[in-house]
Simulated assay, not measured.
Amino acid sequence: MLSALEVITTVVVGLMVGVEFSVAFIMKRILDALPEESSQLGHAHGGRMLGAVMPVWYIASVALAAAWAVAGRHHAGTGLVVTAAGLLILTVAMSVLVLVPINNRSKTWTSENRPEDWKEQKNRWERWHYARVALLIGAFTLLAAALV
């Protein structure tokens, strides 16, 4: 049972890292290459789409890592899993405190109602997102290391 939990947790977190890495380093470049109005609308649509899915994914990742830490508390690598869970909790806190409020504003913007500083807000979100991706990569790495 513990082995299944370890694999499921690692796969779920790994897929989330892949999605967030894609947002940061692939989708950003694609959307930023579009004309300004299309770019902003693409960012808004992405915010609505991923904003509906990612909260569940983040909470599930934290719950799975916590379950692994508890179930495997007497096994080698538990410290790595606990640290990974801590990093995942930190990403949730960053999301709730900084990234989600910006996303909630930007996902409603159109060319008619976007604020003057929409690019600055987008850039702020992106900077925080890069930090979140780094933490997610760290958490995934720790989980993968705990498997061996």
Rank of each mutant, 00 (worst) to 15 (best):
M1R: 12
V17M: 01
L80Y: 12
G46S: 07
L142F: 12
L64D: 05
S106Y: 08
G77P: 02
F140S: 13
M1A: 11
L142P: 09
Q121N: 13
L99E: 04
I137T: 12
V19G: 09
V17H: 00
L31Q: 00
V133Q: 11
L142C: 13
I137A: 15
G72E: 08
T108R: 13
W118R: 05
A131F: 14
L41P: 04
I8D: 09
L2F: 14
G51I: 11
A76F: 09
G72S: 08
L64W: 12
E126Q: 09
A71E: 09
L97C: 10
V11C: 07
L5M: 13
E120N: 04
S3R: 14
V11P: 08
Q121I: 13
F25H: 08
E20R: 08
T83S: 15
A65S: 15
T83I: 09
S111W: 06
V82G: 00
G138N: 12
N113L: 05
R29P: 00
F21T: 14
A69K: 11
G138T: 13
L97H: 08
G18F: 01
L2A: 06
M49S: 11
K122Y: 04
L136P: 04
E120S: 03
E36Y: 05
M54P: 08
K119A: 06
R127N: 10
M27R: 05
N104E: 12
V7C: 09
L136Y: 06
M16I: 10
